[in-house]
Simulated assay, not measured.
Amino acid sequence: MDNNIKKRIVIFDDDKTRRDSLTMLLNMCSDMECVGAFVSAADAVGNVKATRPDMVLMDIDMPQGDGITGTKQIKEHFPDLLVIMQTVFDDSQNIFEAIKAGANGYLLKRTSPDKLLEQVREAFQGGAPMTGAVAIKVLDFFREEPVPTSYDLTEKEKNILKLLVEGHSYKMIAAKSAISYFTVCNHIKKIYDKLHVNSATEAVSMAIKQRLV
């Protein structure tokens, strides 16, 4: 990310302690800042219009305006805006409803602050952050889907795609694959081309649906 321009992030969470903690965490970063924190998503579109964020950190279970409905509304008006779900829930129904609503990632609230910041930055670079436990549930859900084609992915590309689906960051993929971060980016670009997708979210979705990994 450009160090001279801070990424603008808004938070939707009915827990005041968590709102304050996330606000403080983001504002301590040199490359990000919190530009709004709201107790519900009842007026999610209006809140986004007023704050003009680059990303939304969205809680799911909030009174007077839940996060899944709020995400749907935001995506209808701002389809390119990044929305990362944050919740204590890891049940399948919430996960898939969030994905269907257009969420770009799904993180459990027990994610450590350092890991959270890493995954937020990864999302800004085109990644699709997903807590490992969530990724496993998504994979299990689609385990009976047919595999129409391999899309001519190489073994290396399949391995990298698998790590991406499991929620690993580009940096972690590089470490696990014993290759450079730059090489990971090149492989992922080739994966996008072969799958005819434009983002990590789409790549992960296709990999899951077509059982490519």
Rank of each mutant, 00 (worst) to 15 (best):
M1Y: 07
N4P: 01
I5C: 06
K6E: 08
V10W: 01
D15K: 09
K16E: 13
R18E: 12
R18S: 14
R19D: 03
L22D: 01
M28W: 06
M28D: 14
M28H: 13
M28N: 13
D31T: 13
D31M: 02
D31W: 00
G36Y: 00
G36R: 03
A37I: 05
S40K: 01
A41P: 01
A41Q: 02
D43L: 03
A44G: 02
A44W: 00
V45D: 04
V45E: 04
V48D: 02
A50L: 08
R52Q: 14
P53V: 02
M55Y: 00
M55N: 02
M58L: 05
I60T: 02
I60M: 04
D61G: 09
M62Y: 01
P63S: 06
G67H: 00
I68L: 02
I68R: 00
G70C: 03
T71Y: 01
T71S: 03
Q73R: 13
H77T: 02
F78T: 03
D80G: 05
L81S: 06
L81V: 04
V83F: 03
I84K: 01
M85W: 00
Q86F: 06
T87I: 08
T87F: 06
F89M: 14
F89K: 14
D90F: 07
D90L: 07
D91L: 08
Q93F: 09
I95V: 09
F96I: 11
A98P: 00
A98V: 02
G102F: 05
G102S: 03
G102Q: 00
N104E: 06
N104C: 09
Y106H: 06
L107Y: 04
L107V: 03
K109E: 11
R110H: 13
R110Q: 15
T111Q: 00
P113M: 08
P113N: 12
D114M: 09
K115P: 04
L116I: 07
L116K: 06
L117N: 01
Q119L: 07
Q119I: 05
V120R: 04
E122H: 13
E122R: 07
F124V: 02
F124K: 06
G127S: 10
G127T: 04
A128R: 01
P129T: 08
M130S: 05
A133S: 15
V134T: 03
A135H: 00
A135Y: 01
K137P: 05
K137H: 08
V138S: 06
L139V: 11
D140M: 14
D140H: 14
F141D: 07
F141L: 11
F141E: 10
F142C: 11
T149Y: 14
D152W: 11
K156V: 15
K158I: 11
K158W: 03
I160Y: 11
K162M: 13
L163A: 13
L164D: 10
L164T: 11
H168W: 11
S169C: 08
K171L: 13
K171C: 08
M172E: 15
K176V: 10
K176Q: 13
I179R: 07
I179N: 08
S180A: 12
T183V: 15
C185E: 15
C185P: 00
C185K: 15
I188R: 11
K190Q: 15
Y192C: 12
D193W: 07
D193S: 15
V197G: 11
N198G: 15
T201G: 15
E202V: 10
S205V: 09
S205E: 14
M206N: 11
A207T: 10
A207Q: 10
K209A: 14
R211D: 04
